[in-house]
Computed example of a mutant assay.
Amino acid sequence: MLLRLLLLVCALLRETNGVPVSDVNLKTWPPEGQVMEGKKLVLVCSAAKGTGIITFLWYKGALGLNLGTKTQRSLTAEFEILTAKQSDAERYYCAADNGYGLSLSGLVSITVRIPVSRPVLTLRVPGTQAVVGDVVELHCEAQRGSPPILYWFYHENVTLESSSTPSGGGVSFNLSLTAEHSGNYSCEAANGLEAQRSEEVTLNVRVPPEERRDFLTSGVLEVLLGIFCTTVALLFCYWLKRKKGKRSARDPLRSPPSPVPQESIYRNSPSPSQLQPVYENVNVVNGDEVYSLVYCVQQEEESTAGETWGSEFVSDFICPGTKRTINGCA
């Protein structure tokens, strides 16, 4: 009888001095419920008030799947998930009890971030082989990775384009081909964690035979036109010399006066008194234009009526389809 009275007194004293747990809260580490796949997740349950030995419990999901229980004389306890998996992305809560009834925390959402896997680059051409003028589709996709994912496309390590996918998946990039687009291509994917680079894919762009013929033909024509213009200028000077010789043969007693010196209208050219029939490349005057000069001296002669004839004769030959100007005889 005395023992019962003592137990009753102890229970009354405990109820008078004990403090129930209250303000139970659940926090996570890493903070904000963001954890990388394969890393450790810690669920920290704490109570603002409470005396004595406290029992802590952790629950997963809205149905309250019990994960674990700890009993200790402390206001804080931890539960660890050593290796977080994608299936651990869920809502969690905890509870605490020191004999006065359970006190629950609020729900906390856990997000498991998945790093991107190595992306795969695919080149999609209209036919069996890429040809100049085709539009090739470059498709880059990482099979795993939490969105959003940002992609970059590279040609010989030079960035061509970048694009992002807010909900995951791959992206495509269209490229109109020229002969310079032959080479190695790759792409890269990242989602705020570690970036991954794809393997290189080689693209050979074929130039159609007709385009090669057009290119070679235009070059040959330019060379032939240049030779033609030079030949015409030389023949013209030769004709003037022949004409001068015939006139001298008709009137051999007359001695023509010395030609009147005139100032040259061309840069870097000798004075008219020193001119001989010659073909000369003077210099590049403007951009790609090359001026070629041909000088022929034609002396003045008196006609039978006492008049003088002849003077410096200047003719310009402009070759169509080229940037080369050939100046005729002076």
Rank of each mutant, 00 (worst) to 15 (best):
V201H: 00
A233K: 01
G219Y: 04
N204G: 04
P252F: 02
P257C: 03
T217Q: 12
F228Q: 07
E222V: 05
R247V: 02
L216D: 12
W239Q: 13
Y238A: 11
T230G: 06
E211C: 00
P257W: 09
E222Y: 13
Y266T: 05
I227A: 12
R247E: 02
R212C: 05
V205I: 09
Y238V: 10
N204V: 14
F215V: 05
L224I: 09
C237R: 00
E210R: 06
N268Y: 14
G219R: 15
L221K: 14
L225A: 14
W239M: 13
D251C: 00
K244H: 08
R206H: 12
V232H: 05
E263T: 11
K244R: 10
T230V: 15
K244G: 02
V205D: 01
L253R: 04
V260D: 11
K243M: 10
K246C: 00
A249F: 05
E263N: 12
Y266I: 05
A233V: 05
E222P: 02
K241W: 06
S258C: 07
K244C: 03
R242T: 13
E263D: 12
E222M: 05
F228D: 06
P257I: 06
F215K: 11
K241C: 04
F215Y: 12
P261I: 04
P208K: 03
C229A: 15
P209I: 07
L240A: 10
V223P: 01
T230N: 10
V207E: 00
L203K: 01
D251Y: 00
F215R: 13
K244D: 09
Y238L: 07
V232C: 15
V205Q: 02
